[in-house]
């Protein structure tokens, strides 16, 4: 199995991941991504029925922190905003979003 990515597939994926693809890059993306999908399609040849997926390799379980306030790590408002493009009265500023 191998999928070919159409322009509308690309547009849909780009939208999901909040990227804009330039019009002149569509062909390049389409051919490169299709090549990658073709490359990974060999996975389908491996029988995987009843094989549990692995999401992590540590074997750890139940790792928690206690419910305490970690004062030293809290950032001052100044530090929190230090790298922001635009701020106003202690807030981050973004273009208006419709509620």
């Amino acid at each position: 199995m191998s999928d070919t990515l159409t322009s509308s597939d690309l547009a849909h994926i780009a939208k999901l991941v909040n990227l804009s693809i330039d019009a002149d890059q569509y062909d390049l993306f389409s051919s490169q991504l299709t090549a990658i999908l073709d490359f990974v399609s060999r996975l389908q040849e491996v029988p995987t029925k009843n094989i549990a997926p692995t999401a992590q390799v540590t074997g750890l379980t139940n790792v928690y922190r206690d419910d305490v306030v970690d004062q030293p790590r809290i950032l001052t408002q100044k530090d929190a905003l230090a790298n922001a493009h635009e701020t106003h009265n202690g807030f981050f500023v973004v273009p208006a979003v419709f509620e």
Binding site: R65, V68, V69, D70, Q71, R73, I74, T76, Q77, A80, L81, N89, G90, F91, F92
Partner: peptide, 13 residues
Amino acid sequence: GCPADHFGKEPNT
């Protein structure tokens, strides 16, 4: 470990 009680606090503190 930030405080969970956020009600009425100065923004981004």
